[in-house]
């Protein structure tokens, strides 16, 4: 399947959106050539603010721009976008509901060589905890483009988490993205796999593996991590024998936890989460090696499905 860059989709979308709305401004902290916000700089240099390596200042400056009527997007590696600027996000952006769009780039293990300090395993999970924050995690480049339009249409803070590596395209070109809406990637009857980001790809591959073994797995793309719509979850679990979740993030407080929170007292079904255990990443020569080491491949997801269904 053809893979496309989510980062390029981010940068090109900024340019497109910037064309139709002069209020869109972009901030960066010395990583624009990586996040691809540099594409916006090339076309609209006067609306692009290179803030230096100063993420906290960047977040608060974005808040100031928003409070003065602009629609700022700021981007850097996810660890720094959410983590370094946490209190600035909380105080300056989330409490007032400032219209700031935050892009956490090179999320998860996608910055494989740089190790623990750069591998953001908890960004979306932590952002979920902040009131007023919408949290998005696209599974491919096409979805990223649609989300960018939805982010501008939404008045208020949004955090979007983007992989560094290219990902296969699973979502259709047609239609618009609605924040909160889930989508079916693979139809199935026995079990539902709720997946987000890169794990949509791995779950779709897991569904293939399972099909060969006579297990029919449905894969649902949960690309809005917050708000999570309970009615959507209930729709997709109806008639299924088990629930599995898959995320390229720590299991604590992420997609799996969020879905479990919604289902407390609602259903009595086996529930298995695939995600990173309570530990930091490590340096590796490739992204694939890290997915393997931390249990995030199609095989791991297929195994989780079988555990949930209690089949060998």
């Amino acid at each position: 399947m053809e893979k496309k860059s989510l980062r390029t989709a981010y940068g090109e979308s900024l340019v497109e959106l910037g064309q139709s709305d002069a209020n869109i401004v972009v901030l960066e902290a010395d990583l624009g050539k990586s996040t691809m916000s540099c594409l916006f700089k090339d076309v609209y240099p006067e609306r692009y603010f290179e803030m230096g390596i100063a993420e906290q200042s960047m977040a608060s400056t974005a808040a100031g721009l928003a409070l003065a009527g602009k629609i700022p997007f700021y981007s850097t590696f996810a660890v720094f976008a959410f983590g370094r600027a946490y209190d600035q996000i909380r105080c300056g952006i989330a409490i007032p509901g400032a219209n700031v769009k935050i892009c956490g780039s090179s999320c998860g293990f996608s910055d494989f060589g740089d190790g623990k300090t750069h591998q953001s395993i908890e960004d979306a999970n932590v952002m979920r905890m902040i009131p007023n924050m919408v949290v998005l995690n696209p599974c491919d480049a096409v979805e990223t483009r649609k989300m960018m339009r939805a982010m501008v249409a939404h008045q208020g803070p949004v955090y979007i988490r983007i992989n560094r590596n290219d990902l296969p395209v699973y979502t259709p070109e047609a239609g618009e993205y609605r924040i909160g809406k889930m989508s079916r990637i693979v139809a199935g009857d026995d079990v539902v796999i709720f997946a987000t980001g890169s794990m949509v790809w791995k779950s779709a591959e897991a569904a293939e593996l399972l099909k060969a073994e006579g297990i029919s797995a449905e894969v649902i793309n949960v690309s809005t991590l917050k708000p999570l719509e309970k009615s959507e979850i209930l729709t997709y679990i109806a008639g299924k024998k088990a629930i599995v979740t898959a995320e390229e993030a720590t299991k604590l407080g992420g997609l799996g936890s969020a879905i479990a929170e919604q289902l407390i007292g609602e259903v009595d079904l086996p529930f298995v989460r695939v995600g990173i255990e309570d530990e930091f990443g490590t340096s590796a020569h490739s992204y694939a090696e890290l997915l393997e080491t931390f249990g995030l491949t199609e095989r791991h997801i297929a195994a989780a499905v079988k555990t949930a269904l209690k089949v060998k």
Partner: peptide, 14 residues
């Protein structure tokens, strides 16, 4: 073995 899964030396000081 720097920056590899089985090496001692991480991408950043550890």
């Amino acid at each position: 073995k720097v920056k590899s899964l089985h090496g001692l030396l991480q991408g950043h000081p550890d």
